[in-house]
Design a protein around this nucleic acid. Structure first.
Lengths: 221, 221
DNA sequence: TTATTATTTTAGATAAGACTAAAAATTAAT
DNA sequence: ATTAATTTTTAGTCTTATCTAAAATAATAA
């Protein structure tokens, strides 16, 4: 099995490598993990010894199939715990991350499979991010940023781009939650703000907000 | 906050000190934790620096009020998680300990309070051990060993003395569970075995088993 | 293409937690 | 009350994960 530190590095490498064809650089990892490049080099060697990544000096790392699988399993645990915290323990979506960061390292296959069942085999976490299955596969939602919708289009709020707690708290305050139906009523060219209808209320949303909210387009809108 | 290791040592000292007036010895701790006495001495100094125990060289340690409170909180978390695993995730009582050993170190007051509420504020864990409240107080059940009951007495199975997985698995196999009503039908002087009635079945129980099962006496039996 | 800058790695140090072996203190036995 | 046996502590070493400072390599600019 892997240490806490190894799991955290692996997870970071997994996330950073998702949208890039080339290797993940030492500095990128160091910045993301708030640590020093030399520490990253040390850890990369350990992960490489355990066949979780392929490492070529000065060329960054690429995750292996084994590493990807291992990382996806940690992400699966993280996101299932987030669902549990929100659905069963009354956490709000800005409170879940920190606790899930701890819970994701608990080792017990039975625990996580039973938790999955208790929650009804959810496919997304409270931020709309997909939950990998036992094999590490997941199916990202077809989604667009609210800012890219045209006037008259409507959809369901399915996720956030920025999951900083200040943004999530803002959404809570405005009573915008996952699952809400949102319709674009108008767009203001002057400041790129957007007028929307949500749960029978009308709101004006700044461009910055609209660029951080993901919407699943409803058919026939 | 405390490290994983510090918490584990503290918990052991707490348990070993419960039924003794004098200090807990280095060797006792080492034996219980499957480690070496020298490692214990090192750790004791750290716990002492953090005011969790009082340490006098060659005289063992005594837990402080602060230490006792901290330890009781870890025990509280351990036992609440055990209830959760059995009640919500279909674990059997011999499977819960190992996972609870991990979960008890998760840091989040909200998590544990909400979990407590989800479970309906239970007072005992699946082995019948009392769950401390937020202040670290708990109320042990009035209980007797099955072996000490007289013929005709009856009570409810409320706990085990030995919680080794082999014993717990034996109980599972015999369909003896917490909450079952047990009546003593007879005692065999030759081998000190006991005949009991449990859930409309009659069973013969060896003395060794009867010395590891706690019974809450029912009034008027 | 060479010099400059940025990135990455190496070397050496530190802290936590564990170990072994030896020394010191306590307890038990004669 | 000494000696012997046991317990406990100290001293020194090891591993993991981190750091700083310096060296090596790669990328960029003149």
């Amino acid at each position: 099995m892997f240490t806490l530190s190894e799991e955290n590095y692996l997870k970071t490498i997994y996330h950073l490598g998702l949208n890039s064809e080339i290797g993940v650089s030492t500095n990128e990892i160091a910045k993301k993990m708030q640590t020093k490049a030399s520490s990253v080099t040390d850890m990369i060697k350990k992960l490489s010894d355990k066949n979780l990544v392929v490492y070529k000096k000065y060329k960054g790392v690429r995750i292996t199939d084994f590493g990807r699988n291992t990382a996806a399993n940690i992400v699966r645990k993280h996101r299932l715990w987030e669902v549990f915290l929100v659905e069963k323990l009354n956490f709000s979506w800005d409170e879940v991350h920190e606790v899930a960061e701890q819970l994701e390292h608990i080792k017990s296959p039975k625990l996580i499979n039973e938790l999955d069942a208790l929650l009804g085999f959810p496919k997304q976490d409270p931020h709309g991010d997909p939950i990998p299955d036992k094999e590490g596969n997941y199916y990202p939602l077809e989604k667009k940023l609210l800012a890219t919708l045209g006037i008259g289009e409507k959809g369901i709020c399915v996720g956030v781009n920025d999951s900083s707690s200040s943004f999530l708290q803002f959404l809570d305050k405005q009573k915008i939650a996952l699952g809400n139906e949102i319709k674009v009523l108008g767009k203001e060219p002057f400041d790129d703000s957007i007028q929307i209808q949500i749960a029978n209320r009308e709101l004006s949303i700044s461009n910055k907000i609209a660029n951080n909210l993901y919407i699943k387009i409803l058919q026939g809108s």
